[in-house]
């Protein structure tokens, strides 16, 4: 009995000390590093370009040979409800599955505990129409954005996925989904820009201090591009680029992001 009582005390002390640890004081004028990891998976499997074989809800097997998408305009919300908008000029990232170091963008944010993350999948309409001198880094059509930019219909491709499937009737059984369209410049078009908002409370807030970075680990389930509000069949839609059907794919991929955990 005495022993139990003692261990209970020890346990209480232990918890109390822990609790003290997880409420650090934040200096909101200092900044720390927050990374957001875009971990691309297919259903319950890791995504393996070129080698992994997957089956979608239409019963079609497929491989992926290329996966690239833009993420931008990050906004973070603290537990006290205040938001931090990451400065736009440093807020465009091209996630390229074939280049692992691109899949964990790093942001500088004020110290604090963050419980909500929001970002745009794609390149916002403003940046799609801005002067060429403002399109540097990942947005430079001569640089990383080559292949992610439609020159004939000025605008960025937000999401590009290519692969092969035995059901595709294209040469080499390929399929290609190049999804863009920001709403139009001289005339309104489809707007496939999507804002993704994820609550981090359940699976771990991000606690940033100048001396302590955090990593928000997201799972990006590529299977949801096919399986969603409308199940996409590769046999029926092997090439989708600038077409009304692009909106169907965008309405599916908006749901592919989930928060898995946060590494503090």
């Amino acid at each position: 009995m005495k022993y139990t009582f003692l261990s209970l005390i020890v346990l209480v002390i232990f918890f109390t000390s822990c609790k003290k640890d997880i409420t650090p004081e934040y200096n909101s004028s200092a900044t720390g590093q927050l990374s957001v990891e875009f971990d691309n998976v297919v259903g319950n499997q890791d995504l393996q370009l070129n080698t992994g074989v997957y089956t979608n809800a239409s019963g079609e097997t497929f491989k992926l040979t290329l996966l690239k998408y833009f993420v931008s305009n990050f906004i973070l919300t603290k537990t006290d409800g205040t938001t931090y908008i990451v400065p736009q000029d440093s807020c465009y990232f091209l996630i390229d599955e074939s280049s692992p170091n691109t899949t964990i963008p790093k942001l500088r944010v004020p110290e604090g505990e963050y419980s909500k993350l929001s970002f745009v999948l794609g390149v916002d309409s403003l940046r799609n129409t801005v002067d060429i001198s403002k399109r540097t880094g990942v947005l430079d059509p001569a640089g990383t954005a080559a292949g992610m930019y439609w020159s004939w219909n000025s605008g960025y491709i937000f999401f590009k996925m290519e692969g092969t499937s035995p059901v595709s009737t294209q040469n080499g059984n390929i399929f290609q989904y190049h999804i863009g369209l920001f709403g139009g410049y001289t005339a309104p078009t489809i707007n496939n820009l999507k804002t993704i908002t994820l609550d981090l409370t359940a699976r771990g807030t991000a606690k940033i201090k100048a001396t302590k970075s955090a990593n928000i680990h997201l799972l990006v389930d590529i299977m949801k591009v096919f399986n969603g509000t409308t199940n996409i069949s590769i046999a029926k839609n092997s090439v989708v680029m600038v077409s009304p059907f692009s909106a169907t794919i965008a309405n599916n991929y908006v749901n592919m992001f989930s928060h898995n955990h946060t590494e503090n």
Binding site: T129, P141, A142, A146, S151, W152, S154, A187
Partner: peptide, 25 residues
Amino acid sequence: GGIPNLDLQPIAPITNHIEMGNTMD
């Protein structure tokens, strides 16, 4: 009218595989 800005126009013929067939890079 797919290109709204003269500054962006040359990218199209330079990179079109049946025009100049090159990359900007």
